[in-house]
Design a binder for these strands. Structure first.
Lengths: 232, 232
DNA sequence: CGCTAAGAGTACCGTACGTTACGGTTCTTA
DNA sequence: TAAGAACCGTAACGTACGGTACTCTTAGCG
């Protein structure tokens, strides 16, 4: 549990979890326009209870974001015993997991309301940022560092490398989804994308080791591109 | 930047431009919460005039997005006479311009309201997407194609290559800005970022030509010509 | 000078929503 | 089993906002 600044929230009761899940559901359906009445009706509770438990509408939304963040089960990555194959596997796992999460309807809904409120009351934006992008960095960087220590990767600092990997993984997907573009992200496409991103990242930050040679059994099939950048 | 060169749609009068600029200004200041009364007051016009000119609130917002899109004058890129140096320069120009645009306060405000409304009424989202990400693709792809024709680049299709470049350029910047993270994007940093993105893109999609430092050992793979994309 | 049109300013209407208040019901506990 | 707390359902209140109507000023024009 490497949560430095967040360790006081999850003492909700089961009933309260139901309410927060109802909020998530409604957020997906109607987005920003959810009303307290809607929440009360969906959760089969009274509005008075909502206000007693969560203070006001913003408090309810913030609690919901926290609850969702705590619920998203991101697989921890073990930086131990790295060779090139497992490093690539870790990178692909991370990318696939990340793509899966950000294309979730709940993630999109949460990011939408957070972005909408980021202009005025920046509370939600900060929280989503903290549990989204920043948490991902915190999680992957040890792997990158381990890769560097093992002589597999070469980069000036982990933050820079991570941000590049982030770009290679997400590309324009998140912004397009947020803007309402209907992209179909099947599991196969996610896997292909993750493989391509890892491939490209290793091509950029690999420590002089030929990438596409020898023991590479799974060539990214389909829409992946540059397997030939370092062909000996 | 000031030359409108409006192709077909917006033949607004000067007075109406003032109104739309007021909307942009207010959008930056209060974001989603702008009211018609605010607009009328800021633009020194009556609400009735707003409704006569723009129909309703959504019409006003859509017109504003169109107006801003028409006002952003992105430099056209000339795909003629490509060598590696000019290709890299074109790529850097594109990246720097794109980073500059998306970090603008107006661009952020517009994207925020479009994203907020994308869940329910997808009108704005589609328009922003069309004038943002998709227009960028439309603009850069000819350059990429020219680079491929000149034997400088190697990719299966321009869309894939463009999306990777998009990721290398934007990384996590746009989502962080949208969520309210205060990032300082100086002109120097943009230039550095653009150079790094172009560098990495050429490393990934360059046609077998060594990129790194100016004169490196040329790996003489004569087979990888510009027409080597038939594999897989 | 009167007539007309456009538009600024403002009052007004209907509605939707956040928030509060209250009566009735269920659960806890002694 | 009965007191008391927690909670549900709903009515009510105040406010804010989208949209409309009405008045008043200004400009063009015969």
């Amino acid at each position: 549990m490497t949560s430095p600044a967040s360790s006081h929230e999850p003492d909700w009761t089961e009933r309260q979890h139901d309410v927060l899940n109802a909020v998530l559901q409604l957020l997906v359906e109607v987005g920003d326009r959810l009303t307290m009445t809607d929440v009360a009706k969906r959760a089969s509770c009274s509005k008075e209870t909502l206000y007693k438990w969560f203070g006001d509408r913003d408090g309810l939304l913030i609690s919901t974001v926290r609850w969702q963040a705590a619920r998203v089960k991101v697989l921890p990555i073990d930086p131990a015993s790295l060779d090139l194959g497992t490093l690539r596997m870790r990178l692909e796992e991370f990318a696939a997991n990340w793509l899966t999460v950000i294309s979730t309807k709940t993630s999109l809904a949460l990011n939408r309301v957070a972005i909408a409120q980021a202009a005025s009351a920046g509370g939600l934006g900060k929280i989503v940022l903290e549990n989204g992008r920043l948490e991902m960095g915190r999680r992957l960087k040890p792997v990158l560092e381990a890769g560097r220590k093992a002589g597999l990767l070469d980069f000036p600092d982990a933050e820079t490398a991570f941000r590049s990997y982030f770009g290679l993984v997400a590309r324009d997907i998140q912004i397009r989804l947020l803007l309402g573009d209907e992209i179909e992200l099947s599991a196969d496409m996610i896997k292909t994308d993750a493989a391509r991103a890892a491939q490209q990242f290793l091509a950029l930050y690999g420590a002089g080791i030929p990438i596409g040679s020898a023991d590479q059994t799974k060539t990214p099939d389909g829409t992946s591109g540059p397997t030939a950048t370092r062909s000996a």
